[in-house]
């Protein structure tokens, strides 16, 4: 597969539903979806449903850069998948968030960011694989 995957995770001392809902709350997004150190998010908006879009404006100095994406999957309180359009990822990318209760309390949050090296790979990923896997899932269960 010619994609570029980054996986990271963090344990957060907060209940899973709170961590989950933070990702669909525009006020919370404006507080943590920082593009980098020392930058700000002057505005964020969310349509919290599958097919809905979110938009975040990031600001560095006097320059504003819009980011956005579409929600592909929202499973309360287990998983969110959204596409991520940013200036650094010309062909777009997909972010998957997996939320689990941590044994020690709080939430284990896993983030998988898949970038696409080119359009065909992206289209396969977003379209083809999803339906192939869904069919496979149906066959196996």
């Amino acid at each position: 597969m010619s994609d570029l995957t980054l996986t990271t995770s963090r344990h957060i001392k907060a209940a899973r539903n709170i961590v989950f809902d933070a990702w669909l709350d525009p006020e919370m997004l404006a507080r943590f979806m920082l593009p980098g150190e020392g930058m700000t998010v002057p505005s964020a908006s969310v349509e919290p449903q599958v097919g809905g879009r979110f938009a975040i404006v990031m600001q560095a100095g006097d320059q504003q850069i819009p980011h956005g994406g579409e929600y592909k999957e929202i499973d309360r309180f287990d998983r969110i998948i959204f596409t991520w359009e940013s200036p650094f990822s010309v062909d777009g990318s997909t972010v998957t968030l997996n939320f689990k209760d941590a044994d020690s309390g709080g939430t284990d949050l896993e983030l998988i960011h898949v970038k696409f090296a080119d359009e065909p790979t992206r289209d396969n990923h977003l379209g083809g694989w999803d339906s192939i896997l869904a069919t496979l899932d149906g066959v196996l269960s």
Binding site: R10, K13, P35
Partner: peptide, 22 residues
């Protein structure tokens, strides 16, 4: 320290926002 993925920066920020909220 700053040389880490932007997603690590964001998760860290989410953590501190939620923890301070608690």
């Amino acid at each position: 320290t700053q040389l880490r993925s932007v997603w690590d920066i964001r998760l860290e920020k989410l953590d501190s926002v939620l923890t301070e909220k608690n």
